[in-house]
């Protein structure tokens, strides 16, 4: 009999193992390349089993991401990544669920779902690729497009104020909120690892330039604005995050807020465990008893 000796030093999954053989459709230089690479590394760091992991998205350039990850994936419809992810996670809590998408997808058409997934403290990690524009539909204004910017749909300049996704997430009740930059790979991987490990709704806003509709400089401009949170920053203090929201001149990355609260699944599981007591192996017969005249 021969036996195979495994080399214990090597982890089972390497970043490359999470790369599917589908070639990305993204433009050369698109920030989303950085996001997907960071995801491969973060998944490898966490040793996520691909077959127990689902990456869900809506529609947009960024929402193509699940196709590039070797795991289960669901590229759904515009704005609806979170409802689908909610169903997957609640129905099968043992799966690792990551939702991804663009700013239009998550904040405009899907904004309501963002509010409620955060509020529920659903146990998933949501990565929003923020390019301050609608990429796929070729350059219209998004909720994150700075006021005054000329886009395809705002010929005379964007007449609307923009929002800060992190500010929304914190106020909606997300329990882990961070900002990252797709051009800062090392920090981004760390943020993803932390977000995916967080117990509860983790929101990661990744500034991810669209070279095609925001110009080649978006990358450079963002890089120049990059700052880190100061030493000793208290991320458990909601109020501490305020100075880092709605930033214009700088771009601060890092974990802005973190809290430890029961997730939706914890609450559901508690109820379910209690509810099942005395109803083990419930049959239709037994349920039908409810409809019998009780006297």
């Amino acid at each position: 009999m021969s036996s195979v000796v495994e080399t214990p030093a090597l982890p089972r999954f390497q970043p490359g193992d999470y790369k599917s053989d589908l070639k990305p459709v993204w433009c050369a230089g698109c920030g989303d390349f950085g996001v997907v690479s960071a995801m491969y590394r973060a998944m490898a760091e966490l040793q996520l089993e691909p077959w127990n992991t689902v990456v869900v998205s809506g529609i947009g350039c960024s929402s193509r991401l699940p196709g590039y990850v070797e795991a289960y994936g669901f590229n759904s419809v515009h704005g609806r990544a979170l409802p689908i992810a909610t169903g997957i996670k609640v129905a099968k809590p043992e799966l690792n669920v990551v939702a991804v998408g663009g700013d239009g997808d998550g904040l405009a058409i899907g904004g309501n779902h963002f509010l409620h997934a955060s509020r529920r403290n659903l146990d998933i990690c949501y990565v929003l690729m923020d390019n301050e524009i609608y990429g796929l539909t070729k350059g219209q204004a998004a909720p994150t497009t700075p006021s005054g910017d000329k886009t395809k749909s705002t010929y005379f300049g964007n007449p609307e104020p923009s929002v800060d996704p992190c500010e929304l997430a914190i106020s909606f009740g997300a329990t882990w909120v961070a900002r990252g930059f797709s051009g800062d790979m090392k920090s981004l991987v760390d943020l993803m690892v932390a977000g995916m490990s967080h117990h509860g709704f983790a929101f990661l806003n990744v500034m991810s330039p669209c070279v095609t509709w925001r110009g080649d400089d978006q990358f450079k401009v963002m890089k120049a604005k990059l700052r880190s949170l100061p030493e000793g920053y208290d991320r458990t203090n909601r109020a501490a995050a305020v100075p880092y929201l709605r930033e214009k001149e700088v771009l601060t990355t890092g974990v802005l807020y973190e809290a430890h609260e029961p997730s939706l699944l914890d609450r559901l599981e508690g109820q379910r465990t209690n509810a099942m007591v005395g109803h083990e192996n419930l049959t239709t017969e037994q349920v039908l008893e409810v409809f019998k005249p009780p006297f």
């Binding site: 669901f74 409802p83 992810a85 997957i88 129905a91």
Partner: peptide
């Protein structure tokens, strides 16, 4: 959407 997710799972 959620039940599509649940059933997919």
């Amino acid at each position: 959407g959620a039940i599509i997710g649940g059933s997919f799972a």
